[in-house]
Structure formats: C-alpha cells, structure tokens
Design a protein around this nucleic acid. Structure first.
Lengths: 344, 344
DNA sequence: ATGAAAGCGCTAACAG
DNA sequence: CTGTTAGCGCTTTCAT
C-alpha cells in the first residue's frame, strides 16, 4: 500500500495533475464544479499533499529558526526562548521550540529534524555530559547555522552564555562579606556543565577570602523538585543543629524552591536561621514563599543575542567567524538572605 | 546570485553528484582523500544541502507533531505540551512547540509552516476572537490532521477541552455555600472564548442559587500581569470599603497573582478581607504569596488525550470521525479563600 | 571508489 | 478553464 499522490487524485477525478495542484493551492482559475469534485475525490482518497514536494519548486523562502531547550517547564528556558522570538520576529523569522528534557537522544533527534526540514538554523542548549557530539559535527559539515547556549568541549561554534563561575563567586563574596562563615553549595545534577562551573565559582570565592574551602561544603543535591527536596531533608537530618550552615547557595531557583520547602518542613526559618541564594532569577523567584535572593541571568538578552548571531549566520553568503559572547549576571538581593548577627 | 547546489560542488570538486551526496551522508564508500576534498569545497562554497530535496526521495518517514500554544511562559500551556510529549514520545513521535503569543497571524503562520514542513499533525490552542479561520479550513482541505484545545465556531474538528462554564460554577457555588454574598468575577481578555465561557458559568451559578446576578459583578480585568494589576487597583480605588466584594473569582491563576499583588498594595488581606479563587492550577499556584484556591484543569491529561487523538488520525489510512472530549476540572481549596464570618 | 541517469511529488509556465 | 511538460535538488541503483 503506497502513498497516495496527486496523480491518483488526478486520474480518479478525470483531470490532470495541474488542475489538482491548482485546487490544492486554492487558485481561482478552477471552475467551481470541477474544484468541488476534485476536493471530494481528495477527501475520498484521504489524500495529503506532501509539503516537501511542494517546497522543492519554489520553497525554501520561509524564514524559520528553532531553539532546543532542556526543560519546557523551567521559566529560565522559556524566557530565553521569548528573547529569541522577540529578535527573530523583528527580522521576520518564525521560531519553533523543542525540548530535549535533558535527554541526549532527543537533542540529536531535533537537530536532525530541524536540518532535514530546512528550518534555517538552531539555537541549542546542549546536554554536555557524555560529550557525544557527532550530531553537532554533522551540522557543521553541512554548514548548518547554529549557536550554543553553553560551551561544548571539542567543538568550535558560536556560543552565547553567562559566566556561571563569576556569578556564583559574586554571591559567595556577598555572603562572606555579610558575615557568613558556614556556607554550603547545593550542587546540581552531576551531568550538567553548569553544575561544575558553579562549583568552581564557589570554590574560587574562598580562595579570594580569608575563609578556607573544604570539600564538605559541596553537597550534591540535584535540581528536580522531588530529588532536591529529599536530599535537603537528608542533609539536615544527619546533622546536629549547631553544625547547620548559615547560608546555602543553590544550584538554581528551581532547586532553591525545593530547598525552601524542605527547610520549612524542618522548622528552619529563612532567612533568620539560614540564608538562601538562588540562581537564574526566574520570574517566579520574587513570589517565592520568601522572595528569593538570586543571581539574575539576563534571559531575554541571552535569547536576543543568540538569535542575532544565528540570523547573521543564516543570511550571510559566506562563512562568518565564530562568536563567543559572555553576558554579565546581576546579584539580586531579596528577602531570603540576610547578614549574620553575632553568634547567639 | 542563485543558491548553490550539489552540482556546483561536484563540478568544483571534479567529482559527480553521486559522490558529493555520498559524503554528505557520511557513507564509508568514499575514499578519505576525495571525501576530505569534497568537504573542503563544500566549506569553501558555503554549501548547505537542502533538506527538502533530500527528503523527497526517501523521506516522509520521520514522526513529528507540533503544538501551537498561546503563551510560552504560562505554565498551563507548557504543562499541556508536556502531556503531549509524554504520549507522543511513547509512540515514537517528536514534538515541537510553537507559541502564537495570542497573535492570530502567528497562529496562521505556524499552521502553514507545520503542514508545509510535513510535520505530521498539529494540536492547536486557537485564538478564537475574530473568527478568522481560513487557515483551519485549509488544513481540513488538505486532510491535515489536527486537534483543537478549544471549540472554534463554524468548524467541525477534533477538540479536547474542559468545561469552563461548569468549572466556574463549582467555584461560585462553593463560595455561595460558604456564606459569601458579594462575589465578583474578574474576567479575562474579551477576545478569548474562555473569558465568555467563564462569565457564563459565573452567571449560571447564581441562577441556581438564591442570590441575584447583576451585571456589575463582571469586571473586565484582562490576564496579562500589568494590565490586571492596574485594573484591580482601579477597581478598588473607585469603591468605598464597605462596597468591596468578599470574594473574587479570577479568570486564571496568572491574573490571580496580579490581583493578589494589587490587594496587598491596597492593604487588603487575603483571605480575611477577601477570598481569591484562581483558575487552571498552574504548578506555581501552591507557592503563591497565599497558596491559591483554584480550579484545576487536568493539563497533562488534556495534552495526552489530544496527542492520542491526533496520532490516531495521523496513522489512520481513512478519515476518522471527529471527536470531542470534555475533561473534568477539580476544585482545589487552599489558603486564599475562606468561609465568611457573620458581618462585623 | 565513482559516474550516469532515473526518479521522488509537486508546481509553474505555456498551450490549447 | 484545463492539460502538458519541464524542472526543483537530491538520492539511489546500476554500471564501470
């Protein structure tokens, strides 16, 4: 059983391909009666014209780009996508978004899909774990324009990112400066490069202070809600109260929320007992149970810059040099953190 | 200046089209030295193979569907999309999402894009305002499978939706039963069909009670944050305290947040002075400044059902009968509402 | 290991 | 108004 084509329809309707084509395209040059009949036959045969074939002749003029994010439900990413849309739309590009949900296969699938559908280019928040990057090389081979939202080792490509290390450093410095001495970092998923960069930043902050860094200050907690919530509970239950940290630097705002929830459960007050600092500044951070002190990544700007670079590459007839832009973060102090009073 | 094709590359590299094709497809039948040379030429010419042409021969076997939502940053929609993914992935389909951002032209663009790229089908949260639905008719004409997330007058199509009217009715009934007599509805954007259905439900609830409905109980407030916030302020400022309602039924959770923010500004306490009821139950509703009493729409289930129907239609060789499924909502009581005590 | 040629399914002129 | 025909840019046998 093979696919039905325009030829079958033509034959069955007793007209020529050309006519069928005309009715598909709603051209007014077709006599209503034949038009209706052809339509009827199309319905009968359940004929679906193949877009790909239609586009071969004239096509390729649609302007569309794609963005592959890691989590459709994390506002950090959808806000970046909004930035992308903002710029892209202004240039006449439609943007479609796909989410890998942190699955590497999924990311691969989408890069293939985009290129094979002639989506003109892609912005990719890459999974960096297994360093499996054949699919990115493939894109390079076919000169498919793309920009990464995170550095990927081993490939030279456009990147727009933030300096995670510096961002965390700023936060830790603030904490230290405001008197905290028992600070821990609740790290993200081991597979994420963000996790490592942030750990690095945390560490560095100490090397620039009088406090000593110590491996126990890094606690692997993860970022999904259940996971982070559970790990936080565990962390505190196996500690005596006097060994509690006075400040927690969280991997991101999502984790911070789970941590807050757990602390509340444990009867630990924020910020009186413990200060919490998030990361990202998603739009909901300000309405958190306690409005969250956090490190703002300029999400809209990230999206816009990425889109700008991407579209430049798409429209350039020649190969452009690879760009790498690193955007600044901003430390936003809200109510989840405070200076430490002298010990009781 | 015309587009570079495989022919130019072949000519320039002194090989045949077939060979170039082979290197593009990373076939191992090409001698490394010629492969490298061809690659070089490709780079030089900045050649981007056209996916559309590649897919014409074998293609059309990729499994992909799209969903067009109205707001990329409203968790209600992204959660539906998550439901879609869940089901679709289990059937081997990739899903891409597009957001119309409430713009009708945008919706149209995406339906065209999807069908012309041979995305196999679409789930659409339609803008219903201007009843401009040529694009949907076009989809029907080419037998393109799609399912709507909202009824659209004048077109017979698959729909999976919730009963907005009944949902609100439940909420209002609860409010009335718990002693509220001064209830208002903050309505959504006039263009949305949800707005009208919800107003309808609000109205109906009264006809089934001893209280009388009155036009002033419906206040057009909108759903975007700034707008709702401003309108709420305005509403209360032009009223004397004793004329304040005791309960507000909000259009959706997003609006409810803006309303809460405004009330706080005005020194009105929730739920002591006024009860607030939202609509949707987005995941953040439970961490609102005051955890929000709301009407839960089964977002994941909506997505999954829609995907199921869509994929059935995609895979069926014959035309299936149109389905219309209406999912039940659930009233979730949290802390933003309470029974009314006898008047002070 | 590479070249030559026959399509893939549709659209776009032109003829008629 | 409708039929005819020549492609669109690539993939794929099948020879060589």
């Amino acid at each position: 059983m093979k696919r039905i084509t325009i030829v079958e329809v033509a034959k069955r309707a007793g007209v020529s391909k050309g006519t069928v084509s005309a009715v598909i395209n709603a051209r007014r040059t077709v006599k209503p009666s034949t038009r209706d009949y052809v339509l009827e036959v199309m319905k009968e045969l359940h004929f679906r014209p193949k877009g790909v074939a239609r586009n071969l002749k004239n096509g390729g003029q649609d302007k569309s780009i794609g963005i592959i994010i890691k989590d459709l439900n994390y506002p950090f990413y959808t806000t970046i996508a909004t930035g992308v849309k903002e710029y892209a739309n202004s240039k006449g590009y439609a943007v479609i978004v796909a989410s890998s949900e942190n699955d590497h296969e999924c990311e691969k699938t989408f890069t293939h899909l985009f290129s094979s559908k002639d989506i003109k280019g892609a912005i990719i928040a890459p999974i960096v774990e297994g360093a499996e990057i054949d699919h990115l090389f493939r894109l390079k081979m076919i000169n498919y324009p793309f920009v990464l939202l995170e550095d990927v080792k081993g490939i030279q490509a456009n990147v727009v990112a933030i300096d995670n290390s510096r961002a965390i450093k700023k936060a830790v410095k603030y904490l230290i400066d405001s008197g905290h001495t028992k600070i821990v970092h609740f790290a993200g998923p081991p597979a994420s490069s963000h996790t490592h960069e942030r750990i690095e930043g945390f560490r560095h902050a100490f090397s620039e202070s009088t406090l000593a860094f110590n491996k126990d200050m890094i606690v692997s907690v993860g970022s999904r809600h259940e996971e982070s919530y559970g790990n936080t509970l565990k962390f505190f239950r196996q500690k005596r109260r006097k060994d509690y940290p006075t400040a927690i630097v969280c991997f991101n705002d999502q984790q911070a929320l789970a941590v807050m929830t757990a602390l509340r459960e444990l009867g630990i007050r924020i910020p009186d007992d413990i200060s919490i600092v998030g990361n990202d500044d998603i739009s909901y951070a300000k309405i958190y149970p306690v409005p969250l002190t956090t490190i703002r990544a300029p999400q809209i700007e990230i999206g816009m810059r990425a889109a700008e670079i991407l579209i430049q590459n798409i429209e350039s007839p020649t190969m452009l040099t690879v760009e790498r832009v690193v955007l600044e973060t901003e430390f936003v102090i809200r109510e989840s953190s405070k200076a430490v009073k002298l010990r009781r």
